[in-house]
């Protein structure tokens, strides 16, 4: 029987078409059901080993991937830069080749520099999953966000919520888009599923060129707030003040924060998402955050089945 070609890596949403995204979301739906079973674990990847290789600290993403791997019955290995020989000056290539030599089938890579997972993919024979690279992409975050939005808006009972279709939805991504890998991946994924995406933020926090981006841009949150079905708030890094991109956190909150006042002007049923961790009182008021806490929790919870879907898709099947 001829084998169907499988992707070997997940390096970004760029390069995935709608069908590929929908397939991953369908698998995520199957794994969501697995999570509700008395024994939330399947033997699908028995004998496989997944290594999380994090050169940048992120406990929650790492735990989410490791949990996903274990629920697929894969073994896991953990490598974090702080506890490793990277501090002794070992090169990225040496590090990943050493880890691969221990016998791993997938490397889940997070790195502070854009493109690091793409380089790793060139050096190793294992599958590589991008768990966030610099300001480039964070594809599994975008997939779990798509899933969360579809799940929240779809009637209950659908196998893949909403059939994987976001057309007609207006989604605003608010904040520090320029430095956000989440924003890049989400803009591409939301658009691929048919949503209309608007980037909202001060010019200093938007990418210098949006040529080729399938998005609209707004510098006034209040002007677009009432039209958004989904408000996706990005985390604001406080170091942006030092780079003269913002006068102060207070001024950012005034212009772009989801304050109580703005929350009242949201469309009825509008969703508020945040990739976490939140700066309460900066991009979102504490009371608004509590009010919308369920969905943010769902984002975290959906991370596991979404990452199970990715690992299963990359590692299930012949090589």
């Amino acid at each position: 029987m001829t084998e169907v070609a499988l992707p070997r890596h997940l390096l970004g949403i760029a390069g995935l078409d709608r069908a590929a995204i929908v397939e991953l979301l369908s698998l995520a739906a199957s794994f969501s059901e697995v999570a509700e079973r008395p024994i939330p674990k399947v033997p699908a990847l028995r004998g496989k080993t997944v290594a999380t290789v994090f050169f940048e600290p992120s406990t929650r993403t790492r735990l989410s991937f490791e949990s996903a791997a274990r629920r697929l019955s894969a073994d896991t290995m953990t490598f974090t830069a702080a506890t490793s020989s990277v501090t002794k000056g070992e090169s990225l290539r040496d590090t990943v080749e050493t880890i691969e030599a221990m016998g791993v089938d997938a490397l889940v890579v997070r790195h502070r520099a854009a493109g690091a997972p793409a380089l790793v993919a060139r050096w190793v024979t294992a599958s590589v999953v991008n768990a966030g690279d610099g300001a480039h992409e964070h594809p599994t975050q975008a997939l779990l966000d798509c899933y969360t939005i579809l799940e929240a808006l779809a009637p209950p009972g659908a196998e893949l919520p909403g059939g994987g279709d976001c057309s007609g939805l207006s989604i605003g991504i608010v904040g520090d888009v320029a430095h956000s890998r989440v924003a890049r991946s989400c803009a591409l994924a939301f658009e691929a599923l048919g949503a209309a995406v608007t980037l909202v933020g001060p010019r200093t926090l938007l990418p210098p060129s949006l040529e080729g981006w399938p998005v609209a841009v707004a510098s006034d949150l209040d002007a677009v707030l009432g039209e958004l079905d989904v408000v996706y708030l990005l985390r604001l890094q406080t170091e942006r003040m030092r780079q003269a991109r913002l006068p102060s956190l207070e001024e950012y909150r005034e212009r772009f924060g989801l304050t109580e006042g703005r929350a009242r002007r949201l469309r009825p049923g509008a969703l508020v998402l945040h990739p976490g961790p939140m700066n309460r009182g900066v991009e979102i008021d504490a009371s608004v955050a509590s009010e919308h806490a369920t969905l943010v929790t769902r984002q975290v919870r959906n991370g596991v089945p979404t990452r199970m879907a990715v690992l299963f898709r990359l590692l299930g099947g012949a090589r």
Binding site: A14, A114, G115, A135, R184, P207, P208
Partner: peptide
């Protein structure tokens, strides 16, 4: 230049690499 590692433009924006204008 602000430490940009590549030309600031469509590609730097897409790739998330700080550019120099």
């Amino acid at each position: 230049a602000a430490g940009g590692a590549m030309h600031e433009g469509a590609w730097s924006s897409r790739l998330g690499i700080a550019g120099q204008p």
